[in-house]
Simulated scan of single mutants.
Amino acid sequence: QGDLRTFLGTKYTKIPMMHRAGIYRHYEDMENMLQVLEVDLKGGNMSMLLLLPFHVESLSRLDRLLSEELMAKWLERLTEQSIAISLPNGIVQGLTQLAALGLKDAWDQKMADFSGLDAMKGQEALHLRDVLHWSSMELEEEDEQVEKPKLFYADHSFLLLVRDKASGALLLMGALDLAEGPGLHDEL
């Protein structure tokens, strides 16, 4: 489900938000002024960690703050709580051109080296012309009735991490500080 709400990122926009309530692992770090929420992804092998500052702000503070030690502290202090979550709809899906992520030499005919994959043995230098990578994650738990839930309302910039639950390895780290949607206009 989704309804249009304001997202306060680097640009203020109106975006569809999804809402869900349930029992989630949550920690409120008063010292660093942020909420940490862990949500299992479908299949239960991975989880998504959301780091949401208490206030609208640039993510540069969180970027400087983030460390392995602090992550361990947050994970240790997560407790199961009744939480009502509101997230930008579609944050867990994306279409990314790999060149934009830093994979550049593979597209350059002179720089690319795919000789180990070349079944024709050098008749033509192999390189990539275009690759698109689609990723999709689904949240595990369905909406459920909970009493007096704490609100986790992600209507402003936040960090997102995906980790393997068995090993603890971080698989993905990203940020949402710009949500595409119609801009807000001052009507005064």
Rank of each mutant, 00 (worst) to 15 (best):
S60D: 14
W74T: 01
Q109K: 11
H55I: 15
S136Q: 10
L160K: 08
L126V: 13
G90I: 10
G183D: 05
L103R: 06
D108Y: 07
S115G: 10
A100Y: 03
G2L: 12
D108Q: 07
D3M: 05
T13L: 02
L59W: 06
L65G: 01
R163D: 07
E124P: 02
A166L: 15
S135Y: 00
G168V: 13
W134G: 10
A112I: 00
L95C: 09
D177Q: 05
F114M: 07
V92E: 12
R129E: 07
A154L: 02
D63F: 08
G116Q: 01
A99R: 15
H19M: 14
V146A: 01
A125H: 04
A166T: 14
Q35F: 08
L70W: 06
G174C: 06
L101Y: 05
L78Y: 15
D40G: 03
H185K: 08
K150C: 01
T96N: 10
E124D: 15
G9V: 12
M46I: 11
V39N: 04
F152P: 03
R5N: 10
L126M: 09
L117H: 04
G22S: 13
K148G: 09
F152N: 01
P182M: 11
G183Q: 11
E142S: 11
A84S: 08
D177R: 06
V39R: 12
R77G: 05
L75M: 11
A100G: 12
E142V: 08
H55Y: 13
A166E: 15
K110S: 02
N45E: 15
F7P: 01
Q1S: 10
K42Y: 05
A119Q: 01
I15Y: 00
E76T: 14
M111K: 08
R163M: 12
L188M: 12
S82P: 00
K110R: 11
